Simulated scan of single mutants.
Amino acid sequence: MRRLIPPLAVAATAAGLSLLAWAEYVNWRASHRALGVSTGTDGIEAVVVLGYRDRGPKANFVNRYRVRVGLRSQSSRARESVLVLCGGSVGGDIPEAELMARYARSRGYAGRILLDSTSTTTQENIKNAIALVEDADAIKVVSNPPHAAVGRQYLRSLRPDLADRLARGADYRFGEAPLLKVAAAVIAGRYHARRRAELR
């Protein structure tokens, strides 16, 4: 006799799959938002990695993930590529940018690194990074895709003249880090809801 799957289990599985599919779409869509016309394939590129609250003394899981995204976002065809790591001492004594720099070096990265080690918000990340990236031909802002999109929007509002240089990083891969995608999608939803409420 065939054993039936309980309806509650079927419903829970369907809900879970729907949540993952929704988060996948939100992250994919965000990875294409607020981009410029630069392809980021030649010239000088700056890859801006946005930090996440970190107690230290080592980079936490989220910041390690973001550094890996930053490293894989660097173009092999760029004449020069610089990694710009952003984040101050928000959750601990050591700035997030320094923790991320140590992690990048531990992975064998020997390229150029610039640090913004004083910012405490995403808007400050971008504001402080501008002086470090304004001479680049292509600017890639990376993090979780919805967070990176917010960063690009801030850059557009602060320095419209740099908007066309915004290029897509490699922060979206299908099926990668599904729980981070769900968290990022939920946080993005709350952020945009607050922004809409403020504009009313």
Rank of each mutant, 00 (worst) to 15 (best):
R2T: 13
R3Y: 11
R3W: 11
R3T: 12
P6K: 12
P7N: 07
A9L: 15
V10W: 03
V10K: 06
A11W: 01
T13G: 15
A14P: 05
A15H: 07
A15N: 08
G16P: 03
L17A: 14
L19D: 02
L20Q: 03
L20Y: 08
W22S: 07
W22A: 09
W22M: 03
W22E: 05
A23K: 07
E24T: 12
Y25P: 00
V26H: 11
N27H: 08
W28L: 15
W28C: 05
R29Y: 11
R29L: 09
A30P: 08
A30R: 06
S38V: 01
G40V: 10
D42C: 07
D42H: 07
D42F: 04
E45I: 01
V47K: 02
V48S: 01
V49Q: 00
L50F: 04
L50C: 06
G51F: 08
Y52E: 09
Y52G: 07
R53H: 11
R55L: 06
P57T: 04
K58I: 14
A59W: 02
F61A: 15
N63P: 06
R68L: 13
S73T: 04
Q74D: 01
S75F: 04
S76I: 10
S76P: 10
S76Q: 13
S81T: 15
V82G: 02
L83G: 00
L85G: 06
C86S: 12
G87D: 09
G88D: 11
G88N: 12
G88L: 10
D93L: 14
I94T: 15
P95A: 07
E96M: 05
A97G: 11
M100K: 12
M100P: 10
A101M: 06
A101D: 10
A104P: 05
R105C: 03
R105N: 02
S106Q: 12
R107D: 09
G108I: 03
L114H: 11
D116G: 04
T118P: 01
T118K: 15
T118G: 09
T121D: 00
T121H: 00
T122G: 02
T122Y: 01
T122K: 02
E124C: 03
N125G: 08
I126F: 02
A129T: 10
I130R: 00
A131C: 12
E134T: 13
D137S: 04
D137W: 02
A138F: 08
A138Y: 05
I139Y: 06
I139D: 02
V141N: 00
V141A: 00
S143Q: 08
N144K: 08
P146H: 14
A148C: 04
A148K: 05
A149V: 10
A149W: 13
V150G: 07
Q153D: 14
Y154G: 04
S157E: 14
P160I: 01
D161I: 02
D164S: 14
R165M: 03
L166W: 00
A167N: 04
R168L: 08
R168V: 11
A170C: 09
D171R: 05
D171H: 06
Y172I: 01
R173Y: 10
P178D: 01
L179N: 07
L180I: 09
K181T: 08
V182Y: 06
V182M: 08
A183D: 13
A184K: 12
V186R: 09
I187N: 14
A188C: 13
G189T: 09
G189H: 08
R190C: 12
H192N: 11
A197V: 13
